[in-house]
């Protein structure tokens, strides 16, 4: 049951991502990408990570994608549906390279033997203990990085 759900969600996510990267209207691409991220959040839940699934929905599908939409609305791109989609000359080398890399990665993964999995849901308590005790320094660094990003965005967006 769990496994079938995983394959259905994986197919939905891959199809939504393909639609997102071939769409030339950025707003449509963002909406496809939100679909893909919801499927990915459900996959995270299946992989015993309910916290990360919640964060994926809140931060990625909520905040980051809304920020993208906000900037697209602000930029006034004219008529994106009339803009040129990259031609076959652009798609073909990228597709060939992507297929080669994907085939190499899939072959390397399938050649490995995997041990028996340990099925255990990591709850919020264990997650928080690991986050704030073992990786406390990383939290400080990440918070400083977010502060620098805020300062940089304010500097770039100031009136002059």
């Amino acid at each position: 049951m769990e496994q079938y759900l995983f394959y259905i969600l994986a197919a939905a996510m891959l199809i939504a991502t393909v639609f997102a990267i071939t769409e030339k209207h950025p707003v449509h691409a963002i909406v496809y990408l939100v679909t893909s991220f919801f499927a990915l959040a459900a996959i995270f839940y299946l992989l015993a990570a309910p916290m990360i699934a919640a964060f994926e929905v809140i931060i990625y599908a909520g905040a980051v994608m809304v920020l993208f939409l906000f900037v697209i609305m602000m930029l006034d791109l004219g008529h994106p549906e009339k803009a040129a989609r990259p031609g076959i000359g652009h798609w073909l080398p990228a597709m060939v390279l992507g297929v080669v890399i994907a085939a190499a990665a899939v072959t390397a993964i399938t050649l490995r033997t995997t041990t028996a999995p340990a099925t255990r849901v990591i709850g919020i308590k264990e997650f928080s203990v690991a986050l704030f005790q073992r990786y406390g320094v990383a939290i400080e660094i990440i918070s400083m990085q977010l502060l620098f990003a805020v300062v940089g965005a304010l500097y770039l967006g100031r009136k002059r």
Binding site: A20, P86, A94, A102
Partner: peptide, 28 residues
Amino acid sequence: MIPLAHVLILAALLFCLGLVCVLVWKSN
């Protein structure tokens, strides 16, 4: 239970889709 190899294959395919998107869309 979901095998780890299938998760890794899915991640590899997703990464390649993102890579193709970066390589193709120079105009936007």
